[in-house]
């Protein structure tokens, strides 16, 4: 009898532990896109110190209704009926069709465009600091100036014949001190002629804590990168990569597909060189940092 009670207690205890440790195989891992075998990858930076585990977060899937889209449309100055496009967006536009809002049905990400103003020739662009002010005030106005976002940088977002057409103010979101990263990490405001907002692409998913997840050691992640198990692959002309920065963050894959959990990932940043040692392009790659039962 005592053995049975002990066994039941053990089973219950294991259940509690596994529940605390999060949902295991339901995590979405960083995809693999093997790097070509003939590329040398050198790490030029010390490995970061990382914790043994970090919090796991489940993304709350938004309910995208007509009312949801209409409310955001009003914030962008667009009034009217939204329509469903064939490619997973709900769309609103003003009568002149020069202000368009797309809402991604799977994730709730917002995309606002002024198509005629993105590549205006010889625009009068604000300074970087002015652009940051414009972007920040705009986000405050639409209720998107969240406490967990910070300005990352200001870059030339688009150019015509080499002359800047608009600026891109990029924001980064951090959770528990770790940045959100990956192709799904979208939080950018583009500013064109005379400081006008010409494009907005923002996704700020809501999430809830779902236990903790063990993190692999940085050298294990480096080993994965050097044994060509990383995402994405380098371009074909690339013959060597020098890694200059390694950090830990949460990976989001895409704004058009619902992702159940934020995926812990090591971020490798560096530069690609061709066979002659000439710089080709900046390199960023991700390696899944979680260990899953």
């Amino acid at each position: 009898m005592r053995k049975i009670v002990c066994y039941l207690l053990l089973v219950a205890l294991m259940g509690i532990i596994s529940a605390c440790r999060g949902p295991g195989i339901e995590f979405r891992n960083v995809p693999l896109n093997n790097v070509s075998d003939d590329i040398d990858i050198a790490v030029m930076t010390p490995l970061p110190e990382t914790p043994d585990y970090i919090c796991s977060y489940r993304i709350i899937k938004p309910d995208i209704t007509c009312q949801y889209v209409t409310e955001y449309g009003a914030k962008f100055g667009i009034v009217g009926e939204p329509s469903n496009t064939n490619f997973g967006q709900m769309t609103m536009s003003n009568p002149e069709k020069d202000k368009i809002l797309h809402v991604y049905s799977e994730t709730g990400a917002l995309e606002y465009n002024c198509p005629n103003k993105l590549f205006k020739v010889n625009p009068e662009l604000p300074s970087d600091n002015e652009a940051i002010d414009i972007a920040t005030n705009f986000l405050r106005g639409i209720g998107f100036l969240f406490l967990d976002i910070d300005v990352e940088n200001v870059v030339i977002g688009g150019s015509t014949n080499g002359i800047p057409s608009h600026l891109l103010v990029k924001f980064t979101r951090t959770i528990d001190g770790f940045p959100i990263t990956g192709p799904g990490s979208k939080f950018g405001i583009r500013i064109g002629d005379e400081g006008e907002i010409v494009r907005v692409l923002v996704w700020h998913p809501e999430f809830e804590q779902a236990g903790e997840i063990n993190i692999i050691e940085p050298y294990t992640a480096v080993n994965s990168l050097q044994t060509k198990k990383a995402y994405p692959a380098a371009p074909p002309d690339c013959k060597s990569i020098k890694i200059e920065d390694i950090s830990l963050g949460y990976y989001l894959s895409s704004i058009d597909t619902y992702q159940q959990y934020l995926t812990p990932a090591y971020i490798f940043r560096g530069k690609c060189y061709n066979g002659k040692g000439e710089y080709l392009q900046d390199y960023v790659s991700w390696v899944d940092a979680g260990t899953y039962p």
Partner: peptide, 25 residues
Amino acid sequence: GADVAYTVLLSWFLGLDIHYDDGTV
């Protein structure tokens, strides 16, 4: 209706922007 056709140029840029990060030009 509410949907709008974009120019070929913008369609290329905006269509690809969905799946790429800020290192992509």
